[in-house]
Design a protein around this nucleic acid. Structure first.
Length: 363
DNA sequence: AAATCGGGGAC
DNA sequence: GTCCCAGATTT
């Protein structure tokens, strides 16, 4: 329940703040351009927003530049090979985003004449575009008065109105508040301003309230403590899973790789052979589960934290004379690993067995 | 409504 | 270690 009946604050102070303090990001056009009828390219906005889902601006920047240079328009991405897209996405995480990105590009290219829908409803019907991304693209690229709400906006709104109801249940209430605040003029700048505010001023810890354009109206600042908002439901503890990974290398410098299934964890990505990842540390995590008979040598343990569990992989290494026939998978030159769709956990596993497998930035 | 789905930076 | 990041999809 809400503890306040704050009147809807004006968007004006926030837009004024944004005009002075906005961050210059690769997918943005300068603020105020919207007032002149110039908006960011829908393809770039969409690409950036999908990459930014649950991902920091800093992590996205190099991937955005790489994708835009390699696939400058949606038709280029639609025509790309799936494996190339997955390899380019490797390391960014949440790989269903990459699969849906490719599907979405194909739908836009083939069914919409390479033109993105310009409404929230039309955008949301596309793969990988949900409530947030549909509203963001509609507002930023098409100047639609759409209510954009991400984690930053949730935090700003929860503090501005001192909303005590916990997330995620309070989300509809918060979205009502955002919708009432969103202006007909410059809705895209307003959305980006709210997100910039949450990222730079209204931060989770130690917010810089003295610099905030809403410091005069924020109910949490006035009546309580902004750091206490938003209220969130308690989270579960992460279980630990165990497994073994096998790095086989031939005398010619080839490593055995496999393709993971198309759905689920790390779906469609490349891996080294591993056992199943189980809750118990037992025989399945040992060398007895190796893909073939060889002089397997223990090469330490790799720990990797996923969203909902922690994985501890026992690493086994074998040097063999030549490539063996295998039921699934292929032998890839170690010198070509950079071009593979290897998620971070698999790069860690390979690096544990072959320290020089990946170039380090160290001189 | 709850679970699934990566990785990394800030603290 | 904890938190959380311009969330979407499936169950």
């Amino acid at each position: 329940m809400t503890t306040t009946t704050l009147d809807t604050p004006s968007a004006k102070p926030l837009l004024d703040w944004y005009d002075r303090h906005h961050r210059d990001l690769p997918w943005r056009v300068s603020p105020g351009m919207a007032a002149c009828g110039v908006h960011a390219d829908p393809y770039r906005v969409w690409l950036s927003e999908v990459m930014l889902q649950q991902t920091t601006v800093q992590a996205v920047k190099p991937y955005f530049e790489k994708f835009l240079q390699r696939w400058p328009e949606v038709t280029d991405l639609a025509a790309a090979e799936n494996d190339e897209v997955m390899a380019a996405w490797a390391g960014l995480g949440y790989y269903a985003r990459a699969r849906n990105l490719k599907k979405c590009a194909e739908v836009v290219a083939k069914e919409h004449g390479a033109v993105f829908p310009d409404t929230e409803e039309g955008l949301k019907s596309l793969p990988g575009i949900g409530d947030y991304t549909a509203a963001a693209v509609a507002a930023i690229a098409f100047n639609r008065q759409a209510a954009v709400m991400d984690g930053n906006v949730e935090r700003v709104i929860s503090r501005l109105y001192a909303i005590e109801a916990p997330l995620p249940g309070a989300k509809p209430l918060m979205k009502e508040k955002v919708a009432l605040m969103t202006p007909a003029a410059r809705p895209g700048d307003f959305a980006q301003a709210m997100m910039d505010l949450g990222a730079t001023i209204c931060t989770p810890k130690r917010p810089a309230c003295s610099l905030c354009p809403f410091r005069g109206t924020c109910q949490a600042l006035k009546l309580s403590d902004p750091e206490l908002f938003p209220v969130k439901a308690a989270k579960k503890e992460k279980p630990v899973r165990h497994g073994a990974a096998f790095i086989a290398v031939t005398a010619e410098g080839e490593i055995l790789l496999r393709r993971r299934g198309e759905s689920g964890l790390l779906g469609g990505m490349t891996e080294v052979p591993t056992t199943a990842w189980t809750s118990r540390l037992d025989g399945e995590t040992s060398v007895t589960a190796a893909p073939f008979d060889a002089a397997w040598q223990a090469s330490g343990t790799v720990t990797h934290v996923f969203t909902h569990f922690e994985l501890r992989l026992s690493i086994w290494r074998a040097a063999i004379a030549r490539a063996l026939d295998t039921n699934d998978g292929w032998w890839e030159p170690v010198t070509n690993l950079e071009a593979q769709a290897l998620p971070t956990v698999m790069k860690k596993a390979i690096a544990a067995a072959i320290p020089l497998a990946f170039k380090t930035s160290r001189a």
